[in-house]
């Protein structure tokens, strides 16, 4: 049982992580580098320049050489680490997912590839979509509230959303659905930790595109993770 869970979770996780890393370089990395150029001051957003008239000239000039920022230094090892850690993250997701499959199996719910996709999308909602509504993925150059507060809110939201989705899916009757609704809403009623003002230096267009792409990549990777994990899980009888 343990070998089956470890093997299925790790293989599905690393495969989905590899796909997520590919999509990361296709859609996200360029925006991170642009965000870092604004973070380090290699690029200056014009609204900043307006506030500090002395730097006005820098905006137009810098806008043309953003490929040469120091963010590009040692890109190979930096990108290899991104691939490695994306793989590890999805391996962690994969192990949690198969553990949940096994627990559902103990309660008499079978999971195959089809159910796996739904499980994967539920994991996406719990780990990425719901937390993003309070703490959207941060483009480098964003400034956010205290890290520990954000981590507590993040994990609370993941757990509340995950439990709520399980109650929606497997609960019977009105009460579990009511509790599930309250659990899904609670983190957002409480509210994520935010600063009183906005300090971000990157243009909102870049940040918006970054968030949308981060959520899109997560959606695809989680769906594939659930599908693969479900396939491996269904291969052998419980």
């Amino acid at each position: 049982m343990i070998q089956r869970m470890l093997a299925g979770g790790l293989i599905a996780g690393f495969a989905a992580g590899l796909l997520a890393a590919l999509l990361h370089f296709a859609f996200i990395q360029e925006l991170i580098l642009v965000g870092e150029d604004y973070e380090t001051g290699a690029l200056v957003h014009f609204s900043d320049a307006g506030a500090e008239a002395d730097h006005n000239h820098a905006a137009g000039e810098a806008a043309h050489d953003h490929g040469t920022g120091d963010a590009g230094e040692m890109p190979l090892s930096r990108n290899m680490l991104t691939v490695l850690f994306t793989g590890l993250t999805y391996a962690g997701y994969g192990l949690l997912l198969v553990a949940a499959f096994a627990f559902a199996g103990q309660l008499g719910h079978k999971v195959g590839a089809q159910e796996g996709i739904l499980w994967g999308l539920a994991g996406y909602a719990a780990f990425q979509l719901a937390p993003s509504m309070g703490l959207p993925p941060e483009l480098p150059g964003s400034v956010a509230a205290d890290l520990t507060d954000r981590q507590i809110w993040y994990f609370g939201t993941v757990i509340a959303t995950g439990v709520a989705l399980a109650l929606f899916a497997f609960g019977r009757g009105f009460i579990p659905a009511l509790v599930a609704g309250m659990l899904i809403a609670a983190p957002h009623v409480i509210g994520a930790p935010h600063l009183d003002e906005y300090y971000g230096v990157a243009p909102p267009e870049v940040a918006g595109e970054f968030v949308a792409r981060a959520l899109g990549v997560g959606f695809v990777a989680w769906a594939v993770l659930g599908w693969l994990a479900g396939r491996f899980w269904a291969k052998e009888p419980v």
Partner: peptide, 27 residues
């Protein structure tokens, strides 16, 4: 694994996992 890769605040881990943490929406 998830905590070490995504959330531990050791400087080395943070730097190595930096781009992934941003892209995954981890704080």
């Amino acid at each position: 694994v998830l905590f070490l890769a995504g959330h531990a605040q050791s400087a080395t881990l943070h730097d190595a996992a930096h781009d992934m943490r941003h892209a995954t929406g981890f704080p």
